[in-house]
């Protein structure tokens, strides 16, 4: 019963897998590296290799900055299971905390994009009847994600109520 009223900071917060940082790095790399190569190639063709190199360097620096931002975002993501609801915390600039009662979950999605899949990760997303209650947890190891989904579904069934 004590978990019911436990304040948000006294909870057992869990975090996405550390591999999620590598997923984000891979995504940034996949976007930035081909562009940088293209810039170098264009520069070489146009006969001004210095400009091409500078553009590529700028792109790489921007990519690195983006990587830092995304890494901080990954670090800010956390979730905690209480007796009757799930808490999801995220965001660096805009800090968000969502409380979703298990009884309000309509269905739960487990999705994995190509990047996440290649790192063996998946995203769990809870849907309620409200479109705005955006509770998703990215970067869970695939088996942990399915376990969480089943667990949430069981909890939801036990507590589900009418609208």
């Amino acid at each position: 019963m004590e978990a019911r009223t436990a304040p948000a900071d006294a909870l057992d917060w869990r975090r996405p897998s550390g591999r999620l940082r590598w997923v984000r790095r891979a995504q940034v790399g996949a976007a930035v590296v081909p562009l940088a190569l293209l810039a170098v190639a264009m520069g070489a063709v146009q006969g001004s290799a210095a400009i091409g190199g500078a553009a590529a360097g700028g792109l790489l620096v921007a990519g690195l900055a983006l990587e830092r931002v995304l890494a901080r975002r990954v670090g800010a993501w956390a979730y905690a299971e209480r007796q009757d609801d799930l808490l999801v915390r995220r965001g660096v600039l805009f800090r968000r905390l969502s409380v979703v009662p298990y009884g309000r979950m309509q269905y739960i999605d487990v999705t994995a994009g190509p990047f996440e899949r290649s790192f063996g990760l998946a995203t769990v997303r809870m849907h309620t009847a409200a479109a705005a209650s955006d509770a998703r947890i990215p970067g869970l190891p695939a088996d942990a994600a399915t376990r969480l989904r089943d667990q949430l579904a069981t909890l939801g069934e036990a507590r589900s109520g009418g609208l």
Binding site: F94, R96, L97, S98, V100, P101, A129, A130, A132, S133
Partner: peptide, 14 residues
Amino acid sequence: KVQSIRSVEGPWQR
């Protein structure tokens, strides 16, 4: 009827 409860803290607000 509440489906979920959220809190948001923007940079200015913080």
